[in-house]
Amino acid sequence: MALASSINCVETDLTAEFRDQFLLTYQHMLLSRVLEEKLGSLYRAGGRIVGGVYLGKGQEAFSAALGVQLRKGRDIYGPLIRDQAGRIAFGEPIIDTVRTYLGAVTGPMRGRDGNIHRGRPKEGHMAMISHLGSLLSVVAGGLFARRLAGTLADSIGATSIGDGGTSTGAFHEGLNMAAVEKLPIIVSIANNQFAYSTPNTRQYACENLVDRAAGYGIDGMTVDATDLASCLKAFRAAAAKARAGSGPQMIVGTLLRLAGHGEHDDASYIPDKARQSPSARDCLQVAEDYARDHGWMSSADLRELNDEVRRNVDQTVSKVSKEPAPDPFKENWQALSCAELVEGQHEA
């Protein structure tokens, strides 16, 4: 029986452990925001970043609240475009982000792919391709193989998508398969109301995307994705249920993308009405206010944290800027791991 419910953070649930997780997640969000602002300014300055820059501004709480539930090396994470915060929370060092954006040969993608298309699959961080929805079955497959090998234990998988990505066949096929196999996977849907420029009304016809959970026979929850406390509660509950064998968990977060699709996009198609709605609250600010109101952080703590994060980002960018770009003459140009089967090594 699928369950659609809504999460509201109740004051009595605020244990010390929750506070620690909240503050940790907030740090991931802040680091993500500062890092992405830096990447945006490098992009606008021109020359350093080829291709686009895709920001998760406004989605940090929803993204990081999932990432922080996962354990690198034990869980499998398939993040998407706006999951810088989630990737940090999962344990990706920001130098991997910067190296990938700058195309450094030292990075995980070695200049072969860029920006958000990065990962270290052997560490459980899947590297997204651009075809939306196609990572869901891949994460599910990793869990399936572990179950076959008897190594699943309490590990789970998680993958993210947006409102637009839920319209793909791959998303449907992957989620249905994961449901049939009752795999421990969290599917987080950031409904940021616009898929590039296309509004929800041109994307789906159900009242709420979470209604679809019942059709898949899985649990579904909605959450105010601008509110970190609610997001943490939702994803903690989902992770616990997935680990306990309850099968796929769908979480739909409502928010607004506070940036363009990429930095090339001024998002002029987002109407003022949407920009003034509660879903347009900046989750970083909401989290800051929440922490301050609960006496968990002072303004001085916040300033200190901000300075530290900025130093970290600046130092990382500066270090990577001195690293070598890929050299086409040192590139092996082999798409197969079996070198003896590689073609085209003899052309003129």
């Binding site: 869901l136 193989a145 791959a170």
Partner: peptide, 25 residues
């Protein structure tokens, strides 16, 4: 437990195999 029926989902079948291969299958 080594041979499995799949839903009529060729995209998901291949995606699943890729994820499994990353895990050593």
């Amino acid at each position: 437990n080594r041979v499995f029926d799949a839903p009529i989902s060729e995209d998901a079948m291949v995606g699943m195999a890729i994820g499994a291969a990353v895990e050593g299958a």
